[in-house]
């Protein structure tokens, strides 16, 4: 299983991006996206923003599970096309956490939700830094490590 995560600011530009794989079932934590998918990931993710902006006014929950799908090249060189799913999380300040994953959310909905909750915690800690402004890029390597630790814990 591979994951591509991006935090999108209020002006629709990414402020953090990250790619990782599962640590469960003997995974080593690196993503297995094919080179084509690696290039497509940001496009797929950004095209789903339209859907987010529509459903954000229909629900007041923060977690949006598998609201978008993409049928694209699978992992490995010879495998057939597979479905990718996009789940999201909206903070109260309308910053979007969006994630592409290649397995249906019905299997691990709770772990993705937990992951987003912890990510929100890390994001708010960044935001409370008086030198950080909304929509600044998060370049801290400590933040990066903490996100990857969360990924290891839940996904």
């Amino acid at each position: 299983m591979s994951y591509y995560l991006a935090i999108i600011g209020t002006t629709d530009s990414p402020i953090y991006e990250c790619e990782f794989g599962t640590h469960k079932q003997g995974g080593d934590g690196t993503s297995k996206f094919s080179p084509e998918m690696k290039e497509l990931n940001p496009f797929i993710l950004h095209s789903s923003i339209d859907i987010v902006e529509d459903i954000q006014w229909q629900t007041n929950s923060m977690f949006l599970k598998s609201f978008d799908e993409f049928h694209g090249p699978g992992t490995g060189s010879t495998s057939t096309n597979v479905n990718y799913y996009i789940s999201g999380f909206l903070t109260s300040g309308n910053v979007k956490f969006l994630m592409i994953h290649d397995n249906s959310v019905y299997k691990n909905e709770d772990s993705i939700k937990q992951f987003f909750m912890d990510l929100n915690d890390l994001y708010v800690k960044t935001l409370l830094n008086p030198f950080y402004k909304v929509n600044d890029v998060i370049s801290s390597s400590v933040f990066d490590l903490k996100v990857k630790a969360c990924a290891k814990k839940y996904l």
């Binding site: 591509y4 990414p14 953090y16 991006e17 990250c18 790619e19 990782f20 080593d28 934590g29 690196t30 993503s31 940001p42 890029v137 998060i138 370049s139 801290s140 390597s141 400590v142 933040f143 990066d144 490590l145 990857k148």
Partner: peptide
């Protein structure tokens, strides 16, 4: 380490990650 918008998501080798984690 950390996110760089001009490079996009980069996966560091695990040895670097361990090194960064210990300093952080």
């Amino acid at each position: 380490g950390g996110y760089n918008p001009s490079l996009g998501p980069i996966q560091l080798p695990t040895s670097y990650q361990a090194q960064l984690a210990s300093t952080a």
